[in-house]
Amino acid sequence: MSPVKPTLKTIAEISGLAVPTVSRALNDAPDIGARTKILVRKIADELGYVPNRAGVRLRTGRTNVISLVLSTEHDMMNHTARLISAIAGEMQGTSFHMNITPYFPSDDPMKPIRYIVETRSADAVIMNQILPEDPRVAYLRERNFPFVTHGRTRWADSHPYFDFDNTAFGRIGVEKLVMRGRRNIVMISPPRNQNYAQNMIDGGTGAARAAGCSMRVMQGTTSDNRNEDIQLGVARHLAEFPETDGIVCSATAVAMAAVATLESLQHRLGEDVDVIAKEAVPFLTLFRPQMLTVHEDVARAGQFLAQAAIQAVRHPEKPPLQGLDVPTG
Rank of each mutant, 00 (worst) to 15 (best):
R183C: 10
T153V: 06
P160M: 03
N195H: 14
G212T: 02
Y196D: 10
A197G: 11
G212E: 07
M218W: 02
R209C: 04
G206A: 15
V174G: 01
G203L: 05
G212D: 02
V186C: 11
V174Q: 04
Q219D: 12
R182V: 09
A210Y: 00
G220P: 02
I188T: 08
N199Y: 13
F164E: 03
A208R: 15
R216N: 09
P160H: 06
H159L: 05
G212P: 01
A197W: 03
I188S: 08
R209F: 03
F169M: 08
G204M: 08
I172R: 09
I185S: 09
A208T: 12
W155G: 11
I188G: 09
I188A: 04
M215K: 02
N195I: 05
P190D: 13
V178N: 06
P190I: 14
W155F: 08
T149K: 01
G206R: 13
D202W: 02
M187Y: 09
C213Y: 00
G181R: 10
G170T: 05
F164M: 10
F162E: 07
Y161A: 09
Y161Q: 01
G151R: 03
G212F: 02
T153E: 05
R182P: 12
P191N: 15
A211C: 04
P191R: 15
H150G: 02
G204S: 09
N184H: 15
I185C: 07
R171W: 04
P191Q: 14
D163S: 11
K176L: 12
R183K: 15
M218N: 06
R152V: 07
Y196I: 05
T153Y: 01
D202L: 12
G170W: 01
N166F: 10
M187T: 14
H159N: 12
M200C: 13
V178F: 06
R171F: 05
G220R: 07
A168F: 04
G220V: 04
Q194P: 01
I188E: 07
A197F: 01
W155I: 00
R209T: 11
